[in-house]
Design a protein around this nucleic acid. Structure first.
Length: 424
RNA sequence: GGAGAGGUGACCGAGUGGUUGAAGGUGCUCGCCUGGAAAGUGAGUGUACUCUUUAUUAGGGGUACCGAGGGUUCGAAUCCCUCUCUCUCCGCCA
């Protein structure tokens, strides 16, 4: 969430940013925040004053008691009753206002940075990079949902039987290529300086709030009500929450973590057209990279993360483009996001395989993730994360782009991991 | 599932009703020592909110905070209640 102080000091900047996200009542929301904040401060001043008085009185009574002046102490004691009731009321009032302010802030998304293009829909995203050429496929080429049946490597019907739609079963070379990609991605990240983490795949409520999945994406996560745990939608959640409520030493920065986890998404209401095959699943595998840096270093880190991800795609020989997401397409918590899309020749469309974002202090503020800088001042850090990479759509593109009469050719870099060169 | 113990500052760890925001240690910052470092040694080192001050990446004041919430009391880290988390033992299991 945004910092109240920041909104107070940069009202116009915040407003402009929210308008870039096409939030129509941004002015009203910000005015409400500022008004609540003002009420809160007034209430706090009043409360502090009342409490200060009580405290002084208590100290005096203590002294009288010790001096043995019982009667005077007793008189003073009676006199405190009124202030006590007053400060209790005021404390309650402050609490309510704080809660109101927090819930207002929870519903205000991050302010896009100045390089985020204006726009409302995905078509307004700005293409900032492109690599590779779409392959020309042979006559018998088909989309991946046919290929997986032809080679019997992924079985949706079996998934239906044992879990439900969107929970595919990977078989034989299908399972092995999954394992191969995971290892390849993890090794590449390690070589780029990321520490590998294997986090829990269920998280508690506090973690959900920490990274912003709660309260606004409540319905998108699988929730185990018996133990009040949520299945993670991405490794970003448990990995970033490692650093919740932490004050890091500047020397420990930047934090660079990578983790492989299955990801679970209910995709409530998203099922329908254009989600065939591997394009959208309830459970999928992803290798996630996370960085925590100082504010000064975060945009350079973002660039490096994009380079890392595009490097992976180049090694996999998959044609891709890089998009600078427009205000309207930006996720709730991001200040800037770049999407990597791979071209899937048989579907003749771009598939998002990675999304790399800088959240600036938005997550860190909720997480209370800070560091002590050289001057000894405590400051919020910047958090960033990106997929490096999500498997299903990479696999879809790989199957489709590499198909021929002979079968599906495995990219060279993956062969040492798969142990086979062809799916045939 | 049953029983017990415990959650204190960046970290470890004292502290059972009145200068305790909190001993001591570690870490960190600055200095001494050193050719340089280590060791040793001296000093400093809470966070959040808030008010105020032309000492303004600063000074001064106030309030809150010892897992969370509530209660008792003139006064609570310290007493009581509820919740929560962690640990240990037993049970069950891998």
């Amino acid at each position: 969430m945004l910092q109240t102080q920041y909104i107070r000091d940069n009202r116009d900047r915040v407003l402009d940013g929210l308008l870039k996200r096409n939030i129509k009542d941004a002015g009203k929301q910000i005015a409400e925040v500022l008004k609540t904040d003002e009420e809160r401060r007034a209430a706090q001043s009043a409360r502090d004053e009342a409490l200060s008085r009580s405290k002084t009185q208590a100290r005096e009574i203590g002294q009288l008691m010790q001096a043995g002046k019982k009667e005077e102490a007793e008189a003073a004691r009676v006199a405190t009753q009124q202030d006590k009731a007053l400060s209790k009321d005021l404390t309650e009032k402050v609490g309510l206002l704080e809660e109101k302010l927090r819930s207002l802030l929870y519903n205000i998304p991050n302010v896009p940075n100045e390089n985020v293009p204006a726009g409302t829909v995905a078509d307004d995203n700005e293409v900032v990079g492109q690599w590779g050429e779409a392959p020309t496929l042979y006559d018998g080429a088909t989309p991946h949902w046919d290929l997986i049946k032809k080679y019997d490597i992924i079985d949706f019907d079996l998934g239906n039987k044992i879990a439900g739609a969107g929970f595919p079963v990977y078989k034989g070379k299908g399972a092995r290529i999954q394992r191969a990609m995971i290892n390849f991605f993890l090794d590449e990240a390690r070589e780029a300086g990321y520490i590998e983490i294997q986090p829990p795949i269920f998280i508690n409520e506090a973690s959900g709030y920490g990274t912003g999945q709660l309260p606004d994406k409540e319905g998108q996560m699988y929730h185990m009500t018996v133990d009040n745990l949520y299945a993670i939608p991405t490794a970003e959640v448990p990995i970033t929450n490692i650093y919740r409520d932490e004050v890091l030493n500047e020397k420990a920065l930047p934090v660079k973590n990578v983790g492989y986890t299955p990801c679970f998404r209910r995709e409530a209401g998203a099922w329908g057209a254009n989600v065939r095959g591997l394009n959208r699943l309830h459970q999928f595998d992803k290798v996630e990279i996370v960085q925590i840096t100082t504010p000064e270093a975060s945009y350079e880190a973002l660039t490096k993360m994009i380079d890392h991800v595009t490097g992976l795609l180049q090694k996999l020989e998959l044609p891709y483009r890089v998009l600078n997401l427009c205000g309207g397409d930006l996720g709730f918590t991001a200040a800037q996001t770049f999407d990597m899309e791979v071209y899937s020749a048989a579907q003749k469309k771009w598939l998002e395989v990675s999304s790399v974002s800088n959240f600036e202090t938005y997550q860190a503020n909720r997480l209370k993730l800070r560091y002590k800088n050289g001057d000894g001042r405590i400051q919020l850090l910047h958090t960033l994360n990106g997929s490096g990479l999500a498997l299903p759509r990479v696999l879809a593109a790989l199957l489709e782009n590499n198909q021929s009469e002979k079968g599906i050719k495995i990219p060279e870099v993956l062969v040492p991991y798969t142990g086979f060169e062809w799916i045939d």
